[in-house]
Amino acid sequence: MYRIGILASTMTPSPDVYKAFEKINCQLDHLKEVPNFEKLHTYDGLLIEEVHEGAISSVCSTILQIKQQTNVYIWVLSGKSTLINRQVYLQLGVDGNFDQESFPEELLLYLKNFLSRQDEQRKTQRAVVGGKKNANQISTIGEKLEMDPTNHSLIVFIGEKEVEVELTRLEYRLLELLYSYPGKAFNYQEIHENLWNSPYKEENYRVANIVFHVRKKLERHDVGSEFIKTVRSKGYMIKLENIKKTSKK
């Protein structure tokens, strides 16, 4: 499931809006301020409310604050968008601008089409281990793990038990990269450029933070996180033989 945050101070999404987002496989969170770095990376997209036309300076500041920390998708929700405002936001790298009058219908249609294309691209580009597979199949790692590009999840088989671990877009891309060559150590630069598609600036903590959150999710599902191995002073690798064999009682 995709996770979308809406930064809004004057509007509160109704229960029907939350349900509408769930129908297109999106979790909508109402945010009062930009999340801290740890929480920010868990979002696949952020929607910023433009309270009025004159709030362009505040919106631009928020956009820059977000883009300094992550390459998450960003959209602006305007009371009434103007040509000048739209052009400014696009120059800052925003992915779209929508009017509140058409919210949420127009945005939902956009997201449905956009995310559908993202899923199709992910299916064709994902790493396949253990032989070639049809692009519409789930990527299988031996008999123990499966990666589901549609739900952005990792499915782990422990004996007869099947555990599904939901991941964010970046978390999924991290595991997808590591799975492309099990046993190969990927350095911080390789991982950073694959996740954020931006130049590497010795920001190892950003990669380490995502690995930390993936490991915590695996532990919460009683899977164990030992198969994501830290290679000291270099980066990370996947050790499939370290997958937890049994679950706790």
Rank of each mutant, 00 (worst) to 15 (best):
W75R: 01
T150P: 00
G96Y: 12
P182M: 09
L195V: 08
K32P: 01
E38D: 05
L90Y: 14
T140D: 07
K239C: 05
L40H: 04
Y172E: 08
V17M: 05
R173D: 11
R206Q: 15
K217Q: 13
T230I: 07
D148Q: 11
K184M: 10
K216D: 14
L107F: 12
F212E: 13
V128M: 12
G224K: 07
N136G: 12
D119Y: 10
R117V: 03
I238H: 05
S116K: 14
N25H: 07
L28Q: 06
E50T: 02
Q189T: 06
K249H: 12
N36L: 03
L28T: 05
P13M: 06
N151S: 14
Y89M: 09
H52M: 09
A20H: 02
I56E: 14
K201L: 11
S78Q: 10
L170Y: 13
A55P: 01
E164H: 00
H152C: 11
R122C: 01
E226V: 00
V207R: 05
A135K: 12
N85K: 02
I4S: 02
H221L: 01
V207Y: 08
H213Y: 09
L178K: 10
E219R: 11
E193A: 02
Q65Y: 02
T82V: 02
D99V: 06
K133Q: 14
L77N: 06
G93K: 06
E202H: 14
M1V: 12
A20F: 03
S9D: 14
V128W: 05
E33P: 00
E50W: 02
G5T: 00
G142N: 11
G54C: 01
L195N: 06
Y110W: 14
E202R: 14
P149Q: 01
S198E: 15
Q118I: 09
P104L: 03
R126T: 06
Y43A: 05
K244I: 04
Y236Q: 06
Y172H: 08
R215Q: 15
R3L: 03
L90V: 02
P199Y: 08
G142E: 09
T124K: 15
L90S: 11
I84E: 14
E219Q: 08
P104W: 02
M11C: 06
S61V: 01
L240N: 12
N71K: 08
T230A: 13
M237L: 13
Y236R: 06
F186E: 01
H213G: 04
Y181I: 07
D148K: 07
E53A: 11
E105N: 11
P149V: 04
L111P: 08
Y236I: 07
V211L: 01
A185Y: 03
K112A: 14
I243S: 02
G131F: 09
E164Y: 03
I228T: 12
Y110I: 01
V17T: 15
S153Y: 03
I24D: 04
L218P: 09
I155E: 10
V165E: 08
L92D: 04
Y43W: 02
V17H: 15
I210V: 12
P35S: 08
K123Y: 10
N25S: 15
E219D: 15
T12P: 00
V129D: 02
H52R: 12
T230R: 14
I141Q: 11
K234A: 08
R215K: 15
W196N: 08
R86P: 00
Y110L: 07
I74D: 03
I24V: 15
E22C: 03
V211N: 01
G131L: 10
E219N: 13
A135G: 01
N151W: 10
